[in-house]
């Protein structure tokens, strides 16, 4: 067995690459192809797809023009799903915005500390990664719900008379998502800020730039690669998020992720779920490509 690899660079390389490559091929690329196939099939009565397979474009048409049978014939709403997609994008932008807004100063602060203290802070940012995401979201729920920590404290202090509605609405979903994805924003921005040569800020000040202008003209452009990495790392998963909108939104906030999730669950419409997943993927991909095309050469190279 080992003789097969001995003295043959090509075989050694093949041997080293194949486990990872096979994994990706089997569990990422192949399922994507299966999904593509399902998205063009008709739904089965109890989930899965109808057999024998009937090929159709109906699932894609459905997304761009949702039609429901009514007494007076089919009732169509072209913006039903597009609207949900749109609000998912909007929520994702808001979440990304707040993650970057809160993450940048934190990343800056961490990067400017002495090594030991810096590592400690880094650990504090990373530790949440090691806690189950679901557990964290449920924990947040106990803080923000009607009888939760915040409301209890505010009520006992007499600051409010009725509980604030912080959950089962978009606010709750956004808070939950910002909470969950903040580390994804901090880490790439930290890397960028840490590499930033602070003497450039002195140079800017020396040339008459007040701190705010030095930041906008020198520091931000130079740390842009980190900001963009943060944007992509937060925006892409948040657009398709389903656990947080499900728990924090309590079924009242529809996002594309919860919609897809339902197609594979209670709605038992795998073909439509697959079609939506692929549409989401393509649209996000197009968005990211467009963003990189329009952003500067330097940023693209840094990615």
């Amino acid at each position: 067995m080992l003789n097969f690899f001995r003295g043959n660079k090509k075989r050694q390389l093949f041997g080293l690459i194949s486990p990872g490559a096979l994994w990706i091929l089997l569990f990422f690329n192949l399922p994507l192809l299966i999904m593509l196939f399902i998205s063009f099939a008709e739904r089965g009565r109890t989930g899965g797809i109808a057999s024998p397979v009937v090929y159709t474009l109906e699932n894609y048409k459905q997304f761009f023009n949702a039609c429901v049978s009514q007494y007076a014939g089919p009732q169509c709403d072209p913006f039903l799903y597009l609207g949900i997609f749109g609000s998912s994008v909007r929520i994702a932008f808001v979440v990304t915005f707040f993650c970057i807004l809160a993450g940048y100063p934190l990343a800056y602060f961490m990067a400017r500390q002495k090594p030991l203290w810096r590592d400690t802070l880094m650990l504090l940012v990373i530790i949440p990664f090691w806690t189950n995401f679901l557990v964290r979201t449920y924990a947040l729920k106990t803080v923000m719900s009607g009888e939760g920590l915040i409301n209890t404290i505010l009520m006992n202090l007499g600051l409010i008379s009725a509980p604030l509605e912080m959950m089962f609405n978009e606010f709750g979903v956004i808070v939950g998502l910002v909470y969950g994805y903040l580390p994804f924003a901090v880490l790439p921005m930290y890397t960028s800020v840490e590499k930033f040569d602070h003497s450039l800020m002195e140079a800017a000040a020396d040339l008459g730039a007040p701190p705010s202008r030095a930041f906008w003209r020198v520091m931000l452009p130079m740390t842009m690669p980190g900001v963009i990495a943060a944007l992509v790392l937060v925006f892409v998963p948040v657009v398709g998020a389903f656990i947080t909108p499900d728990i924090m939104g309590g079924g009242k906030v529809e996002m594309i992720g919860t919609l897809i999730n339902r197609q594979f669950g209670v709605a038992r419409n795998w073909p439509f779920g697959s079609a939506m997943s692929l549409i989401l993927m393509v649209l996000v991909l197009l968005g990211v490509i467009y963003y990189f095309r329009s952003s500067s050469e330097e940023t693209r190279r840094a990615m």
Binding site: D197, S199, L200, E202, A203, A204, A205, D206, L207, G208, A209, P210, P211, A214, V218, M222
Partner: peptide, 15 residues
């Protein structure tokens, strides 16, 4: 930034 002096830095610090 309010001083009427300018500096040439050791490592140049060009943007």
């Amino acid at each position: 930034h309010l001083r009427p002096v300018n500096t040439v830095f050791q490592q140049y610090a060009l943007f």
